[in-house]
Amino acid sequence: MSTIRLESQLPAEGDQEKTAPGLQGAFDSSTSELIPGTKTVEVSSVHKSFAGKKVVDEFSFEVKAGEIFGMVGPNGAGKTTTIRMLMDIIRPDSGEVRILGEPLNESTKDKIGYLPEERGLYRKVTVAELLGYLARLKNTTTGKISPRIDNLLERLGMLPHKTKKEEQLSRGMGQIIQFIATLVHDPQLVVLDEPFSGLNPVNRQTLKELVLELKNAGKTLVLSTHQMNEVEELCDRVLMINKGKVVLYGELSEVRSRFRNNSIFLECEGPIGELTGVVRQKSHGQFMGYFSMETTRHRTS
């Protein structure tokens, strides 16, 4: 006898909590220069290959001001490469990337906060020195650096550790400092590459609250993840990629409305048996795809 557990992966609209009471006020919406709805990021026909292998194949998408844009896909899909091209760390083979209405340059770099997937800090430098240095590299006005560092450290409970070196902090504390380093210059666009990977549950929740508060403050966020539930929880629009190709791109609500009634995940122990309406089935490794008469795919694991 088999048991089947049905679980909807797409919560209904309005389910998500979009306030972070403990962190409200950390980001000043008055500093946002973005007009909601304008294009903050424009990626046009971007292509990138490494050693002849297409890693990013003709990507085109836009990120609107004030939204949280999610890039979702499995490992090796091309998320990090795309983000590195957004940050001008690597150059695309072809295509164009425009940030805040212009090609990426020194001026626009200063308006971007970036949390890379591989992240770390100087181990022998104090928290205050490190944050000050990174803020100055973003051309932050000298007078604003110290108050802003104190403000962020205080709101995230890290003020007592201001004079400590990174090597004296726990891993979780280091993660918080990395988030603060991303935001210390009050960026207009925040790019987070796999922000929740490797985090403990407390910091994961803290970062989610931060992300939502940034959105409430009018900032634009781009985040990548391979967890669909994180995208659903936080993002307004989504770009789903796989093996360097865009699979899905659009409003999360639209995606939800298109696939809510047709796509379910089944987790079962033993044979699933016969399903009503299934006319065809196809194996995808550990997954099994079932197709109804409407050619909508059902997956089971």
Binding site: R84, M87, D88, I89, E106, K109, D110, I112, Y114, P116, E118, R119, G120, L121, Y122, R123, L134, L137, K138, A181
Partner: peptide, 13 residues
């Protein structure tokens, strides 16, 4: 080693 280089390259050339 500390993986700071990517953060720096996002700010400077």
């Amino acid at each position: 080693e500390n993986r700071v280089i990517e953060i720096l390259l996002s700010s400077v050339s």
